[in-house]
Design a protein around this nucleic acid. Structure first.
Lengths: 347, 347
DNA sequence: CTGAAAGCGCTTACAG
DNA sequence: CTGAAAGCGCTTACAG
């Protein structure tokens, strides 16, 4: 008659046996050493995830603390960041996870290397990291992956390099929809005030714009495509430039709402009415589009949803679920407000 | 000739040697076992204290773990909250303290009682709590105090009840300064679009306004003092009401920037120019005052400083310093921008 | 890249 | 009550 099997304590050695490797190898994986074959690493990580192995330190932690996710942002002074953060907070609240905030512009660039940071996250029993910034490079993000720290990137500018899980929006489709809306209103001379040339989301929006123009057989005047920055100053200067053209555009598609608000401010100064004299579409669709006068027609990014998706991905990664995809793009949608109308008849 | 003494690692064995006992005995003392002679225990404890011995667990924690402060906010969708949070983040960064974010509107009302929450904060080794909301009542705040959790309140509306440490702004002086500015420009018919009647910061601003008016010997028309909410809708409706008066005011002091922006939007709709036809002063002085067209003259609250002061107070409380005062009020200052000018000559 | 062997620091079981 | 000895779980150094 077998005695009550005492549940064998979950030690590193047990994990090693289960994974068919030696204890030192498991130790190396846990500590993020480089001298482990990728194949071996993933096998061990799978066992770690399945058994829920915890180091003595983590065991002690998990008795007292709740799990937390660290959110790294460049700044809180953009509506973009706040909306994403709101989404993360909401999803975190539902899953009873705490949110640690790290704002690089206020708290200084992380003093720790990604390796050290990953170590800390593991030691403290945190569950992961949501990065809403371009501040981390591929090597750093890779360090998280190697150490098994669930992480997800929401980059406002570029999709992250490498194998990292990331969440974005359908920028190309959004650009196309904004432009189609203007075309349907009857506009033909539509300018594009873009963001920085090298930034991928800007390129996608531009190509969406070009696709819509091309599909309607409208020729694009190269001088009415002006790349620049994502700041309102670019809208101010951009509008000034566009007003120099012999054949002024009757509509402007701005690559984000900040640019569009700059256009709006400069238009007011110049006595140009929006939308009567010129139509204007922005991109992002944060509350600033809603609050402006006139309220701004804009391609809304599902920023809260993106934050929620990032947190959900962290949770799946924690549970060792297979990821359906490394990259998720959520749909944008055009919100028509007061800044767009048919072109003036005299035009 | 002695070699370079390598600083010997401070192990339990070293402590044992130092105390003239065996390693197991030190282990027992550390773990609070009872089978140690009182005399031996105190000798070992003395060495532990003198050498500052830390168990591997503690060592690891003090290398990696940092203390954290929890910030409780109602919402991130106000410039007020963001500015305060920016201040907290900055001061926390300097002191190497982590910031845990709790947004009640997103994460739901705290499911834990204040007692439970205090217990958790203590267990997790956090250092304290900054409350930027009216969500906690006196009993709850008192629970923190009783359990020795350092806390500070920054209430946008009312100073907290009881003995709680709080940080605020000089609302009365701010109201007086705003009104004096308008009086100096030559205005006499100055309206006050206020916040909710029962809210203390609103009362202070109103009485500052009344004090300035009184000091200049100007009689106040009771109908031009309109209490309401701190929202822009109140500015819209308030301006409509004021325009009904036979003797229209030439200037408006709004109890916050949201109200002022509502006034601005409605003025634009009605074709009333600011500041040519009517002058306007707001309160808060966040970036929204800066960005509006025309830029808003406003009484700036030192919101970032308030956040910093709250964090500093937490740190002092941690270190057991005697508090100089339970209530700190930081000075507001008037920022003159484009929305104020002398009254129209015809008035 | 892997793991047997040695090592480290702490804890446990138990003889005195 | 004390400590020599054995043990535990993880890590390190290094041979292959």
């Amino acid at each position: 008659m077998p005695a009550i099997e005492p549940k064998p304590k979950l030690t590193l050695a047990a994990v090693a046996r289960e994974a068919g490797v030696s204890a030192p190898t498991v130790s190396k994986v846990i500590n993020g050493r480089h001298d482990v074959a990728e194949e071996t690493r993933s096998r061990v990580m799978a066992v770690l995830a399945r058994t829920g192995y915890k180091s003595p330190l983590q065991q002690r932690r998990s008795l007292t603390g709740r799990q937390a996710v660290e959110v790294v942002l460049d700044s809180l002074n953009t509506a973009y960041a706040i909306e994403v953060l709101n989404g993360v907070l909401e999803a975190a609240g539902e899953s009873n996870i705490e949110v640690l905030l790290n704002v690089t512009s206020k708290q200084g660039a992380p003093r720790l290397s990604a390796e050290q940071r990953a170590a800390r996250i593991i030691d403290e029993g945190r569950c992961g990291m949501i990065v809403v910034t371009s501040a981390f490079n591929e090597a750093q993000l890779d360090a998280f992956r190697r150490r098994g720290v669930p992480s997800a990137v929401i980059d406002p500018f570029n999709p992250p390099p490498g194998d990292v899980v990331s969440v974005g929006a359908t920028n190309w489709a959004g650009g196309k929809e904004a432009t189609s809306h203007l075309l349907e209103l009857g506009h033909r001379r539509i300018a594009y005030l873009g963001g920085p040339d090298g930034v991928e989301c800007n390129q996608a929006r531009l190509h969406g714009y070009l696709a819509a123009m091309g599909a309607s057989g409208v020729t694009v005047d190269g001088r009415s495509i002006i790349p620049g920055s994502f700041r309102s100053e670019h809208g101010v200067e951009g509008l000034k430039s566009l007003l120099q053209l012999e054949r002024r555009p009757t509509a402007i598609f701005a690559a984000n709402d900040s640019i569009a608000l700059g256009v709006l401010a400069e238009a007011r100064r110049q006595g140009i009415r929006v939308p009567e004299d010129i139509s204007l579409v922005g991109f992002d669709g944060t509350y600033r589009a809603e609050e402006s006068v006139p309220a701004l027609t804009s391609v809304a990014q599902p920023l809260q949803e993106m934050g929620r998706a990032a947190l959900r991905s962290i949770l799946s990664q924690m549970q060792g679920e297979a990821l359906s995809s490394r990259r998720v793009e959520l749909a944008t949608h055009l919100v028509i407000r007061e800044s767009t109308a048919p072109p003036p008849v005299t035009a």
